[in-house]
Simulated assay, not measured.
Amino acid sequence: MKLYFQNEFLGDIRNINVDGMWINAEITPSKNIDKFNDFFLAIVDEENDFEETNYNEEWLDDSNWYIIDDENRRMGIYIPAVYPDREINWRWR
């Protein structure tokens, strides 16, 4: 599987596990993910309030995030949580 924001490839996803509505896996990031690092850190930081006004509106639009599966099908997801250890969690839209 592959993670995309709009038409931008952000990384390969492997070792997928399903836990109820949530999917978690490992992501091998592409260099394109670097500009999202602060955004993802803010999303997963449970100690602080997430300030939407600090980020690009397009990044906050769920319709811009999707996964391409191994059969080349595009499947929409809600904004993923990408952790510093490169764990990724998401839900299907």
Rank of each mutant, 00 (worst) to 15 (best):
N89C: 14
Y4L: 14
D45H: 07
Y66C: 10
N48F: 07
L60Q: 13
D61N: 15
I77T: 08
K2V: 00
T53H: 09
N17V: 04
I67M: 06
I68W: 00
N56P: 07
V18M: 12
K2W: 00
N15D: 15
F9R: 04
W59R: 08
V44K: 10
I23S: 06
A42N: 13
Y66L: 10
F40Y: 09
K2R: 14
N15P: 01
G76R: 06
D38A: 12
I79N: 05
K31R: 14
D49Q: 07
E57H: 11
F5D: 05
I27R: 00
D38G: 10
P84I: 01
L10N: 06
N54L: 13
P84L: 05
R91L: 04
N64V: 11
F5L: 04
A25L: 03
W90L: 04
I43K: 15
Y4T: 03
G11N: 03
Y4R: 03
D85L: 05
P29R: 00
D45W: 06
I79C: 06
E8I: 10
I43H: 12
P80L: 12
Y4N: 05
T28G: 01
M21V: 12
F5E: 07
R74D: 07
T53S: 12
E26T: 11
N56Y: 01
S30P: 09
A42K: 09
N32H: 06
N64F: 08
W90A: 02
N24G: 03
A25T: 09
V44Q: 10
R93M: 11
W92Y: 14
G76Y: 12
E87D: 10
M75W: 12
F40D: 08
M21I: 13
V18F: 08
N72T: 11
I23G: 02
E58G: 10
D12M: 09
A81L: 13
M1K: 07
I23R: 07
A42D: 15
I33Q: 01
K2T: 00
I77S: 04
R86S: 07
W92I: 15
W90H: 02
D61E: 15
N56T: 09
I79V: 15
D38K: 15
F40G: 09
N64L: 12
E71H: 12
R73D: 13
I77C: 06
F50D: 06
D70Q: 09
I88S: 00
Y78H: 11
G20H: 02
R73C: 10
L10F: 04
V18S: 10
R73K: 15
I16R: 03
N48V: 02
E51K: 14
N48D: 12
S30C: 03
N7Y: 09
V44F: 10
W22R: 10
E71P: 00
E58H: 14
F39N: 10
P84Q: 05
N37V: 15
I16C: 01
V18L: 12
M21A: 15
Y83A: 02
L3W: 01
I43L: 15
P80Y: 03
D19N: 12
N48Q: 11
A25E: 02
A25H: 03
N64M: 14
N32L: 05
I79P: 01
D19G: 06
K35R: 14
D34Q: 13
M1N: 09
L60D: 09
D61L: 08
M75E: 15
L10Y: 02
M1H: 08
I79E: 02
Q6L: 15
I27C: 00
K31T: 14
M75F: 12
D49N: 10
D49F: 11
